[in-house]
């Protein structure tokens, strides 16, 4: 099983994360952690119109949480907010190629999506309260 998890691509994103670092003048910055594991993720967003113009993450934790965050940033870069808003748990698991994670490790894989959704809650709070509310609910299921 571990052979399936710790594939080359996961280790590559873990050791050479994409879009990792701070962001000057982000439109939204948000932090969350997984109390079970202590995995931590910060996400910074720059939004242009209805598009994610730039995304960066900072964090520390296991290979799954950090690789998943790195891959998520690539997935949503330059994408319209409307499509990012609807990303699901399965989209993420498919993206990182780990469909069979146990209940404990799945939290690691989904932490970055949770943080991204919470960031969008913040972004939509005044602009579109209904979307903010739905995203807030979404984030609770992750």
């Amino acid at each position: 099983m571990s052979d399936d998890i710790y594939r080359e691509i996961i280790l590559d994103h873990y050791r050479n994360p994409r879009n990792k670092g701070k962001m000057a003048e982000a439109d939204v910055s948000i932090h969350d952690s997984n109390p079970l594991c202590g995995d931590e993720i910060d996400i910074h967003l720059k939004v242009d119109g209805d598009k994610i113009k730039d995304i960066k993450f900072e964090g520390r934790g296991c290979a799954i949480s950090q690789a998943s965050a790195s891959m998520l940033t690539e997935m949503v870069m330059n994408k319209p907010l409307t499509s990012v808003k609807d990303l699901t748990k399965d989209d993420i698991l498919e993206n990182i190629g780990l469909m069979n994670l146990g209940p404990a490790r799945i939290k690691c894989a989904l932490l970055s999506l949770k943080v991204l959704k919470l960031g969008m809650v913040k972004y939509y709070a005044d602009r579109d309260p209904d979307s903010a509310k739905k995203l807030q609910e979404d984030s609770r299921t992750l």
Binding site: M1, S2, I5, Y6, R15, L36, C37, G38, D39, G61, C62, A63, I64, R105, C108
Partner: peptide, 27 residues
Amino acid sequence: GDIHPHDLATIMNDHGIAIRSGHHCAQ
């Protein structure tokens, strides 16, 4: 090395070995 304890515990679990990983309530 740079193996996060949770990844190590997952690999150990494959071998039927139960170890603990994390901050052990001692942050």
